[in-house]
Amino acid sequence: MTQTTGKLLGWILGTALAIGFVVVMGQLAIGPAAQSMVPAPATSAGLTEVLFYVLAGVTIAGAAGVALSHNILYSAIGLLMALLGAGSLYVFLSADFLAVAQLLIYIGGVLVLVLFAVMLTNRITEITVSNTSLGLWGGLMLFVAVAPVLLAVALVTPWATITPAAAAHTTETIGDALLSRWLLPFEVASLVLLASLVGAVAIARKEIKAD
């Protein structure tokens, strides 16, 4: 019981830390230059901002859970959090169709596949040792080597941004584009899906030898 409470506290603390990190980095991103450029509306954080930070924190905490958890089942739950959070971030980018596709395909399909694989391949009794990893230090060094570069690129580069269009329903536009400009990639994607379906069945089935 106390162990469960401790784990829960750890997750909540991780989420709070991730939210705080995104807030601080966001302040850095706005930066002095942008603040002098914009005539400083100085509004307090609205509901949208708070919601964004909470969802971004959930996403990052889930990703950290996937990377750090000792139990493969907790990793799967962390993946669920990360995918849900990323899917809800699409809503902020006025990509409603993408958000729904993420929900249906990733969470409804890929995550269930992953859970099936976990249940089929791990002997459940020894599940606590099922997720051994190379050790924290190698991962930490890799993280320290890669993350600052990416964050610096994201923060420093002067992106040529446009004023975003007002939120509109994108489903109709995407459907039109898929069947006109992107018709060939669309058909090739369907072929890839067919091939992977047949390939997955052919690889995963058990050989039945008729002696």
């Binding site: 995104v22 980095m25 966001g26 302040q27 991103a29 706005i30 942008a34 914009v38 954080a45 949208t48 901002e49 964004f52 971004a56 996403t59 990052i60 990703a63 950290a64 996937v66 990377a67 990360a82 990323a86 971030l89 902020f92 980018l93 993280f143 890669v146 993350a147 990416l150 964050l151 690129v153 994201a154 923060l155 992106w159 941004t161």
Partner: peptide, 19 residues
């Protein structure tokens, strides 16, 4: 504080790093 492009890039970068 307005949500800008950099916020989303930070989230994407962190997802990539943890992956």
């Amino acid at each position: 504080m307005q949500i800008s492009l950099s916020h989303f890039l930070i989230v994407g970068a962190l997802l990539f790093c943890f992956g």
